[in-house]
Design a protein around this nucleic acid. Structure first.
Length: 870
RNA sequence: GCCCGAGUGGCGGAAUGGUAGACGCAGCGGAUUCAAAAUCCGCCGCCGAAAGGCUUGCCGGUUCGAGUCCGGCCUCGGGUACCA
């Protein structure tokens, strides 16, 4: 009798699938197509357990759809541009390309043994010139359609390294390498006009029926449609360039509570003052310190500078309001200027108290105690749908909601000619410029005579030069004359290439379309795209709920406008599933400069429940030890965070695969945890999973050798089998993989204990193998062939539950007394309600509780429950 | 700060508004064995001797009935536009 030996069995079946071309996708009209895609990985060098979880889920769907008669496309590639490759090159020399492609090779080698049903023939990396060349072509098409433009935008600037920093490289407001205070600086950058699509991207969310509601809500809030008032405050004394301050507000109803005007340090008025007032310049310099993230801006201490300038209130020209320059106002939002109403905005209230500005409530609660903000209370900011009492309405009743007041205020202001109702969106245009080497070059040339000139399509791809080094900060493309100096594509005079590269989100915004024809000479092949698009099921982490998914939705629209996708593909993902993240503790120490240093979990030494890491004390390359023990430093444990290469808290699944095999790893990551929930990684339990699979193998071996005669247990086993088919199929369809696996455990127990005849047990075992095959495909193939199944189980039609076998004749009803379960009765399935009531009232526990009295109420939910209310 | 989630035994978790704790892990007891491994059988939320009571982060509400719906908190996680 053969033992369960994944080490020989798994390569055998992988070879069989390869030879049969089981997972190669070809267009075909005899079956419905099904495109399943998992978000492709960044080639960090090692797959981690989150990847295994993600790709196993996708593979379960892919294999299930294949078994249910679909023509399946299930591709894989790599999101290969980005900062980690540059960081690696900086840290240890070498070239980002070498590092990236070596990592891709390593990760493919780690993924293949997992037996994923992928069409590897379609694989590409976004750093392949073939791919990014087509992306450059798309960029030029977008440019021609007016979807690309340049404007100034702020970046994080490291004044010591003289380089732009990513948000991730700003730690506590300081540059990660130099430790210098980060400043905000303006640069001319490239933008996609995603804001042209704000309304449509928002409205179209309604049609995404198979997307999680939370993702749609997050996107809707992100796009953020608001109806507000745009108007101007006239200045009491104009400056050289301005006689008014243009403001946009979503709370025009609080205009009578206005107390100051705030403008961004980058507002034209601020810049004008800065030029000849050193005090203003000093304040603006201070205000520009710190990172550019919304979080940093919101949480920074609110600072203001009284410019001495004043504006007149539009309703009362005698009422003057001061103009402050304030560090929390961004030029990118609205008009870069606000009016502050401290009574109804906590941030404005904090600001007003700090700078001794007036506070005036314009509404109060209808009832209850209320301390006015002007008397020391908190800002009163009720939901806009809640009715409040207005002390200062313009043209609406004293009792009205915020919404009603806003609408009335806009109408009032429009009528008086004070301003205009304007719909605005929070969504900003997508800045795609990156001042970095390892990305797709933006294919334009700057010519002294012609200005910005698109590169000719026949000159694409604009290939990254390979002779660069990253040992000094900054973008090596800026200091690469032979690459940078080119003739102008229009006039032929000497000109310079754009040295900005594209945001890596551009790379991932259309790869799903490229998979339909990965080697086409145009971005897509329309016939292939029309056949395979849309992605029927997209699977990936919730961390991509906003940016990646929104950018992809924009790209699909833009690609349609340029003729690269059919109109039916402007929403590229029919169904979305967001899996939870695999988290792990982060182990952190700090270096001499106080900057964090992260350590891999396997480097941690545990002692008395505390974590240590070998101190980095070496002499002549030898780790210093004391009495044979390494010198250790205690490690700070940051409880649980998304596995991330940059934090070194990744766990390698390779050990599990090597020890127990791919099927164990696959089953293990799917069992127990619901797919949408985050899981704190632990490997305990992998051994038990392996034992379970060995048990299934053993049962199959026994059954293959059995010749028991049919008997009365056959029917019971087959009923359980059909119930298992029903439950497992439902589980897979609804991403309830953990619940499906629980049913498979239960059915395995039933089958093991069953005394049914050989034929029934054989049927049950073959069905069990089929139901397990999406999760543990190698073991399933082995059992299938052991029991004489025809062909590969991967191609065998999925079993169908016989509904007649699912119903039983009797049903057991719990009896509750006052909502607490006290007893139960078993009755025929179709027993009339009156009869059930009679039986329930005759139940001992009920008789005892009633003590001769009558129930106040008797509730019978047929087939479910009886509740007796005393 | 703001937006979006999550919270159930020692652990992972199950549960169309209807028997809370399925299934699994760990643990405990037993069978088998010279012994062990492997395997098989059983027990396993908390308190209580028992009867019984309590129990789904906390507080309140709706309901005959709430883990599930509503309101308010707490804690943790994700995002916050240059991490991918």
């Amino acid at each position: 009798m053969s033992r369960y030996d994944p080490a020989t069995l798994e390569p055998k079946w992988q070879k069989a699938w390869d030879e049969a071309g089981t997972f190669l996708a070809r267009r075909s009209d005899d079956k419905p197509k099904y495109y399943v895609l998992e978000m492709f990985p960044y080639p960090s060098g090692r797959i981690h357990i989150g990847h295994v979880r993600n790709y196993t889920m996708g593979d379960v769907i892919a294999r299930y759809k294949l078994a249910t008669g679909h023509n399946v496309l299930h591709p894989m590639g790599f999101d290969a541009f980005g900062m980690p490759a540059e960081n690696a090159a900086m840290a240890s020399g070498g070239h980002p390309a070498d590092w990236t492609y070596a990592n891709i090779d390593a990760m493919v080698a780690q993924m293949k043994p997992l037996g994923f049903g992928l069409d590897w023939s379609r694989m590409f990396a976004t750093s392949d010139p073939e791919y990014y060349g087509q992306q450059q072509s798309l960029f030029l098409d977008f440019m021609e359609k007016g979807l690309v433009y340049r404007k100034n935008a702020v970046v994080n600037w490291d004044p010591v390294d003289m380089t732009v920093l990513a948000n991730e490289q700003v730690i506590d407001g300081k540059g990660w390498r130099s430790g210098a205070d980060v400043e905000r600086r303006e640069l001319t950058q490239w933008f996609f006009k995603i804001s042209d699509f704000s309304g449509e991207l928002l409205d179209a969310l309604d049609g995404l029926d198979n997307w999680p509601a939370k993702v749609k809500l997050m996107q809707a809030n992100w796009i953020g449609r608001s109806r507000g008032l745009q108007f101007a405050f006239g200045m009491v004394e104009p400056t050289k360039t301005h006689d008014r301050v243009e403001v946009y507000t979503i709370r025009p109803d609080t205009l009578l509570g206005a107390s100051f005007i705030g403008i961004s340090p980058d507002h034209p008025i601020a810049k004008e003052l800065e030029a000849h007032d050193p005090k203003v310049a000093a304040f603006c310099a201070e205000a520009r310190k710190g990172g550019t993230t919304e979080e940093a801006l919101e949480k920074a201490e609110k600072l203001g500078f009284d410019t001495g300038l004043k504006v007149r209130h539009p309703f009362d020209t005698a009422w003057e309001l001061p103009i402050y320059i304030a560090n929390f106002i961004l030029m990118d939002y609205g008009t870069g200027a606000i009016f502050g109403c401290p009574a109804h905005d906590q941030r404005d209230l904090d600001f007003a108290r700090k700078y001794k500005l007036p506070v005036t409530s314009t509404f109060v609660p209808l009832s209850g105690e209320h301390t006015l903000p002007e008397d020391g209370g908190a800002a009163f900011v009720p939901p806009k749908t809640e009715p409040v009492h207005w002390t200062l309405p313009f043209n609406w009743p004293e009792e009205a909601t915020g919404e009603q007041a806003i609408d009335a205020a806009i109408a009032f202001c429009e009528d008086k000619g004070v301003g205009q109702g304007v719909t605005k969106f929070r969504l900003r245009d997508w800045g795609l410029s990156r001042q970095r080497y390892w990305g797709a070059p933006i294919p334009v040339v700057h010519c002294g005579d012609c200005g910005v000139v698109p590169e000719k399509k026949e000159n694409l791809p604009v290939v990254l030069p390979m002779d660069v080094t990253l040992d000094i900060p900054g973008n090596p493309l800026d200091r690469h004359p032979t690459w940078r100096d080119v003739p102008c594509p229009r006039c032929g005079k000497p000109a310079k290439r754009e040295t900005d590269t594209m945001d890596t989100f551009v790379d991932s915004s259309w790869y799903f379309a490229r998979f339909t024809a990965p080697h086409a000479k145009t971005p897509t092949d329309l016939a292939e795209a029309a056949y395979w698009m849309n992605v029927d099921q997209y699977i990936g982490g919730i961390e991509h709920a906003i940016l990646h998914l929104l950018y992809s939705r924009f790209f699909a629209r833009a690609m349609h406008i340029c003729g690269h996708l059919p109109e039916s593909a402007i929403e590229p993902f029919d169904a979305l599933f967001t899996q939870g993240m695999v988290t792990h503790a982060i182990y952190q120490t700090r270096d001499a400069q106080g900057r964090p240093v992260y350590h891999y979990p396997e480097k941690i030494i545990w002692k008395d429940g505390k974590a240590f890491v070998a101190a980095n004390v070496t002499v002549g390359g030898q780790q210093i030890t004391v009495g044979g023990e390494p010198v250790v430093t205690e490690v700070e444990i940051i409880p649980s965070a998304k596995m991330s290469k940059s934090k070194n808290n990744v766990v390698d699944p390779v050990a599990i695969i090597e020890q127990y095999g791919a099927d164990t790893a696959r089953w293990f990551v799917l069992s127990d945890s619901p797919p949408e929930r985050d899981v704190e990684w632990t490997a305990s339990g992998a051994e038990a999973t392996s034992k379970h699979l060995a048990r299934v193998h053993r049962i199959a071996t026994d059954i293959a050798a059995s010749d028991a005669a049919p008997n009365e247990a056959d029917d019971a086993l087959l009923r359980e089998m059909h119930k298992a088919i029903f439950d497992v199929t439902g589980g897979i369809e609804s991403f309830g993989f953990n619940a499906a696996i629980a049913k498979l455990y239960a059915f395995t127990n039933t089958l093991q204990k069953s005394t049914a005849g050989a034929a029934a047990r054989r049927d049950a075992m073959k069905t069990l193998a089929q139901l397990m095959s999406p999760m543990t495909p190698h073991l399933a193939e082995e059992i299938w062939s052991m029991l004489g199944g025809e062909g590969l189980i991967a191609n065998a039609p999925w079993p169908v539950a016989d509904e007649a076998m699912l119903v039983s004749d009797t049903v057991t009803l719990p009896i509750q007394i006052n909502g607490k379960r006290r007893s139960e009765i078993t009755v025929p399935k179709d027993m009339p309600k009156e009869e059930v009531e009679k039986r329930a009232l005759a139940d001992d526990a009920v008789l005892k509780a009633l003590a001769g009295g009558q129930p106040r109420k008797l509730i019978v939910v047929p087939g479910r429950i009886v509740n007796v209310v005393l």
